[in-house]
Design a protein around this nucleic acid. Structure first.
Lengths: 139, 139
DNA sequence: ACGTATTTGTACGTATGTATC
DNA sequence: AGATACATACGTACAAATACG
């Protein structure tokens, strides 16, 4: 069993985040699986709730888990609708909090910005949209 | 002067984040400007350092500020190099922590993923890259 | 080279509030 | 109503990085 070492160079909360991330990536914690409650990690590893919360916050910002008042779960791989764009520029950034609320985005989800010539930029949720780039005459 | 109300419906740390975000968006805190030290907000608003740190963390995750051991600054608008892609799919997500370190990304910076047919996905820093979509015969 | 001041980072504690079942 | 679990908010202490004299 991998244990958390408070004397290690790496902070306790990052060690826990690494641990849980590996469990998610290995499939030990599959999509939609329940993440143990904060107090479980506190007791199992003898660390503070503060450290557990920081670890979970990090995983949330990485888009790996979703947290509600009932607990956290492994975030399933998003299904993205393909948007076809003829001409323009596409880039990504994090939404501001007001934007995030308006677009009803989970924490840890970027926005995809599409700038088309002569139009307002279009702001799309990056967990629900992807840009299909297509050579003309092939679709 | 806008003050922070501990009895408001909105949490103290989000009120402070809103306040500083507005100062950034209005230009009162221009790009590269120094953000006051945590202790300044603690004293000026009579709130805990914990709340100030949570507010700054939120702004960091929104990509609005950059924090070092010497303090925080307003993040300048990123200059993105345009990548031209003939054919494929582009989407965005947050990097995991190991990815973030490897790509030397600031917190709050997504990655742009380009999937081309028959190739490994290309992972680009979203603050330095954008995808140019071009109709054939127009570039 | 060294200590000091400043500022953020980590880690603990406690208490209370809010949402959900 | 009660149990569970996360959210907010205060406190303390010490570590680490950086800049300055």
């Amino acid at each position: 069993m991998i244990v958390i070492d408070p004397d290690a160079d790496r902070p306790v909360y990052k060690q826990l985040a690494d641990l849980v991330r590996e469990q998610i990536e290995s499939g030990e914690l599959p999509p939609d699986a329940r993440i143990p409650a904060e107090v479980v990690y506190v007791q199992e590893h003898g660390i503070s709730r503060d450290s557990v919360r920081k670890a979970m916050a990090q995983l949330r910002h990485e888009g790996l888990i979703i947290t509600t008042a009932r607990g956290s779960r492994v975030r399933p791989a998003p299904a993205r609708e393909e948007i076809t764009v003829d001409e323009g520029l596409a880039y990504a950034r994090m939404p501001t909090e007001p934007e995030r609320r308006q677009l009803r985005l989970q924490p840890g989800v970027p926005v995809l910005v599409i700038e088309r010539p002569g139009q307002e930029p279009e702001i799309l949720p990056a967990d629900r949209a992807a840009v299909r780039i297509r050579r003309e005459g092939h679709g």
